[in-house]
Amino acid sequence: MEGKIRVLVAKPGLDGHDRGAKIVARALRDAGMEVIYTGLHQTAEMIVQTAIQEDVKVVGLSLLSGAHMTLFTDVTRILKEKGMDDVLVLGGGIIPEDDIPKLRESGIKGIFGPGTPMDDIVSFIKENVEE
């Protein structure tokens, strides 16, 4: 069976630009993945609904503002409610050190700060996706 890793790259919240998310999306595509890109202003519900329909193995969330805690944990909570807890959830952006334990606890496995080399994200996904 010739599976491909399908990843949803989403930008929750209301803040303005998605440059970072796009860079990640392109890097994952160049690493041979199928990347579903949904653009700005996604609610947690929209992200989960998209993850279900696209049957992705990975959801990458990008965030700039301070509202990440609730937005990130909303996504993992709704994923769980919908029985999608086998999805690997990653978060990227400016995330205060103090918040990291709580995010991990909520089910966000990979947390990547600004300037993380793309190769690190790619290999993290390849190592952690359940076959």
Binding site: K4, A25, R26, L28, R29, D30, A31, G32, M33, E34, V35, I36, Y37, T38, G39, H41, Q42, E45, M46, Q49, T50, Q53, E54
Partner: peptide
Amino acid sequence: SPFTGGALLGDRIRMTKLTEDEGIFIRS
């Protein structure tokens, strides 16, 4: 991409109005 086998599937960017409608199923 014939070179990497990867793909950037961006059609949903224009379909966000449909995302939360249970009567619509979108697949890229």
